[in-house]
């Protein structure tokens, strides 16, 4: 069996990220473990967006809403677990939880519901209007979080102690990295399956030519809506991981800067490419750390890099290394 150049590059990237924490511990620099964890989490969030943006051509400028709601799901459940007060939904109440699988499920559910609501309205528009309406929805969630004192409002919400996973000491940074890395791999596998499936075929065809999709009898709206919901779920899961990494969630997770950052990650790495989001996240976090240590204005240089990619390497890092994407 021969493997394509892109697969080889993907494997190298994935193994490189996996190696970082072990090398970091050897070098006695545990902070690098946190950086690697950030890479994995941002990569997962961008994989979510890559389903909508890369496969479906849906330029969502509001994915921070899903990232943030995942973060708040984690923060709110943890705070209720800490206080012992059940979470009151009016008709019913649920206890808080410190268990990661429970928190993840809640984040995915919340992200999926929010994406269904936002998508069912936004997807009736396209192009610039779609970008603006997703931005507007995300900003609504942002201002809602700021003005909601029960969970910290503008100050955000601290998570007293990192949530737990059965059989794993999550307080050890390498362990938490491995959990995030495993979920990243699940995200990658899911993306690859989705892309090559019937659903993925209909989704990618909708990006290329909606009229064609409708004229073979597939309604593009439903396809795009389901893609948007799956996309929101994955990004929300990443948000829950991010909250647990920082032991803190604040409205800044919901702000449009975050949405923009996800788009930047994908463009840097390669739009629609399996490991584009991961490559972008690794590049971004590295850039932020190295340049951020040299100058406060590191984002100026990030801007230059982005400009270079858009002008000279449309396929991002993956496109540069592996050439153009092929569709059987």
């Amino acid at each position: 069996m021969t493997i394509s150049r892109e697969t080889a590059i993907n494997l190298v990237l994935a193994l490189l990220l996996l190696a970082v924490p072990f090398i970091a511990m050897q070098l006695g620099k545990p902070f690098y473990v946190t950086l690697a964890t950030r890479m994995a989490i941002l990569g997962l969030a961008a994989i979510g967006l890559n389903i909508a943006l890369g496969l479906g051509g849906l330029v969502s400028f509001g994915h921070a809403a899903f990232f943030g709601i995942g973060g708040y799901a984690a923060g709110i459940l943890a705070s209720h677990a800490f206080s012992g007060q059940p979470l009151d939904f009016g008709l019913f109440a649920v206890p808080g939880s410190k268990l990661m699988p429970v928190i993840w499920a809640a984040a995915i559910l919340a992200g999926g519901l929010l994406a269904a609501a936002i998508g069912s309205i936004s997807l009736r528009t396209s192009g610039v209007y779609f970008i603006m309406i997703t931005l507007a929805f995300a900003q609504m969630t942002y201002y809602f979080a700021i003005s909601w004192p029960a969970y910290g409002g503008e100050d955000g919400l601290s998570i007293t102690i990192r949530s737990t996973f059965p059989g794993v000491n999550t307080l050890v940074p390498q362990n938490y990295f491995l959990i995030c890395y495993a979920l990243l791999v699940v995200g990658l596998v899911l993306f690859a399956l989705l892309r090559d499936s019937r659903f993925g075929a209909a989704l990618q065809a909708s990006r290329q030519n909606e009229v064609r999709v409708a004229s073979v009898g597939i309604a593009p709206f439903r396809i795009k809506l389901v893609a948007f919901v799956i996309s929101g779920m994955i990004t929300a899961l990443a948000g829950a991981l991010y909250a647990d990494l920082n032991r803190f969630v604040s409205p800044s997770m919901l702000s449009w800067h975050m949405s923009g950052e996800f788009i930047v990650l994908i463009i840097l790495g390669g739009v629609g490419r399996l490991c584009g989001p991961l490559a972008g996240a690794m590049l971004f976090v590295m850039f932020e750390y190295i340049l951020g240590g040299l100058t406060e204005r590191w984002q100026f240089f990030l801007g230059l890099l982005l400009l270079g990619v858009v002008l000279f390497a449309r396929g991002g890092l993956i496109g540069l290394l592996a050439g153009r994407a092929r569709h059987g």
Binding site: L193, S197, F199, G200, A202, R212, V213, V226, G328
Partner: peptide, 22 residues
């Protein structure tokens, strides 16, 4: 793949997420 899209529509199965079409 353009024709396969028509075939999958005829079979009424665009909401399959895992099996690779090729």
């Amino acid at each position: 793949r353009n024709v396969m899209l028509a075939v999958q529509s005829r079979q009424g199965t665009s909401f399959r997420f895992f099996k690779p079409v090729m």
